[in-house]
Design a protein around this nucleic acid. Sequence first.
DNA 1: CGGAACTTTGACACATATCAAAGTGTGTGG
DNA 2: CCACACACTTTGATATGTGTCAAAGTTCCG
Lengths: 265, 265
Amino acid sequence: MKMNTTVRNIPARPRAPVASAMLNEPVQIGLCKTICLSCNLRDLCVPCCALTRLEKDAAERMVFSRTRVRRGEHLYRCGERFGALFGVRYGFFKSVSLLKDGRDQVTGYAIAGDVMGVDGIGPERYACNTVALEDSEVCVLPFAGLLALAQEIPSLQRHFYKMMSREIVREQGVMLQLGSMNAEERLAMLLLDLSKRFAAHGCSSSEFNLPMTREEVGSYLGLKLATVSRTFSKFQDDGLIAVQQKFIRIRDRVRLELVMGRGLV
Amino acid sequence: MKMNTTVRNIPARPRAPVASAMLNEPVQIGLCKTICLSCNLRDLCVPCCALTRLEKDAAERMVFSRTRVRRGEHLYRCGERFGALFGVRYGFFKSVSLLKDGRDQVTGYAIAGDVMGVDGIGPERYACNTVALEDSEVCVLPFAGLLALAQEIPSLQRHFYKMMSREIVREQGVMLQLGSMNAEERLAMLLLDLSKRFAAHGCSSSEFNLPMTREEVGSYLGLKLATVSRTFSKFQDDGLIAVQQKFIRIRDRVRLELVMGRGLV
DNA sequence: CGGAACTTTGACACATATCAAAGTGTGTGG
DNA sequence: CCACACACTTTGATATGTGTCAAAGTTCCG
C-alpha cells in the first residue's frame, strides 16, 4: 500500500517570483495555436477556446508565453504590479494572504484549468501571494493584450465576464458556508470540490494528490491542524476515504456528500 | 434616547420580483444623463461615471431605467433569467441562497453604490434571491446594452473588470477569514465593513441603520441568533457601540478595530 | 389592548482549540 | 547506504467558545 507518489513538503526556500522573468519570452500566436490544441486546458483556458474561432489577423496581435514554476516558487507576490493573468496548465498553487498579526491565511488554491491573478485587476496590484505546491506550468496572459483582443471579439469579452462571474459565485457559495459548517462538513466540501475540479479536466476524480499540508488545509478551512488530522482519521475509519499522506482516494462519494450536507441547492 | 428611525422588520409578504416589470419602462439616455449627475452613486455607479465622458452617439444607444423596491420585495429571484445588473441608489438589500436542507443562508448585502446581479452573468440565471430590507431604489442596467457599450468604450470595459475583480477580492478577504474568526471578531468586522461602505457615499460612518435581524446577521456571519445578541450586548457593555434595536452607533472605533484583530494587512 | 415578531438572557451540552508528546516519512550528510 | 535531523502528522487530555433549549422581555402594528 506504500505510495511513492507522495511528495516531500516545501522547505523554506523563497525565491524571486517568476512573473517578471516570464514576460520576457513572448510566444507568437502562430506557435501558440498548435500548443493550445494539445493543451489540457482546452475550452477552460480563456484565450485558447476563443482563439479557435478567431480571425487570424486579430489573433496575430495576441502574444503570450508559458512558463514553469517549480515547487516552492512564487508565481506572483502580494503588492507586485499587476500585468497578467495566469492559466494553470498543470500543477497546484495555493494563494496566501498576510494577516495583520503576521500569520498567513490560505485563501484559495488553483489546479489545471483555473485562472489566477484576477484579484489584481481592480487594484492593479496582486492582492495575494501564489506559491506552487507542485512543479507546475502556467500560460501567461498579459492583461493589456487580453483587453485589446476582447475589445474586438465580443465572444471573448463575454467569456471573461462569465469567468469572473463564476469565480464570484463559487466564492460566495463555497466560502460563506464555511462559517456555519463544522469540521467534517468543511473537509468533505474541500475533498469533493477538489474531486470535481480534477474531474473537469479529465483527471481522476476519486484519486488525487492534495499537496497542501494539514496546516494549510486548516488555514483554508478555518480549522486547526489537529482538527484537520482528526477529521481525516475519522473519514478513514468510517471508510469514506483512504489517506496515504498527501494522496487521497475517495471510497464512498455518496456518504461523503451526505457528510457535507447542507450545500447550496 | 428613544429612536424613531428604527423600522419594523419585514413580515412574510412575498410578491413577484420587480425585475421583469421594470424592464418595460426604459428611459432614454438623454433623460438619464441629468438624473445621473445628481445620483448619489456618482463615480461608483458603473454607467454613470462612464457616461460623463461619453461620446453622445454611443450613449444614445444606452437605455435603462430606475425603479423602487419596497421593503420586503424581491429585486430578483434565484433561477430567474439573467438580464440586467442593478446599481443601488439608496436602500439596503440582502442576498440569500437556499441551502440543500431548505434553510436560507444570507450570502451578502448591498447598500447605496453597490452593484447587484453579477452572480447571474456566468450561469445566465441569477444565483441568489435579493430582497430589499428597506424601501430602496435601483438603476436597472440591461447587460446586453452594457456589453455593447463596453465594446466601444475601452474605459468602460476596464471599469467593469475592475468592479468584478474588486468584488472577488473583497469576498476572498471578508469571507475566508470568517472561518477562523470568533464571534466578536466576526461582528466587529461586519460593523466596520458597513461603516466603511456607508462612509464611502458620504453617509455617516459612526451611526447607521442595520436593517437585518439578529438571525440574518447570524446567518451571514455563521453564528446563531443568540450568539449575535450576546455579542452585541457585550460590545455595548464594553462601550464599543451603542445599540438601539437596528440603530447602531460606533463609540470607539479604535477598540472595535482591535477586537476585529487579524484582518488582511 | 393584544398578538406577532424579534430580542435578551440563562443553564447546560458539545465541538473545537489548546497544549503536549509520541510517531512517521523524507532528504541530507557522513 | 545508513543514520540523523527536520518537517509533518497523529493522538490524548483538558479548556473554552458557541450551539441548543427555554423562558421572559421588548417593540411594533393592527
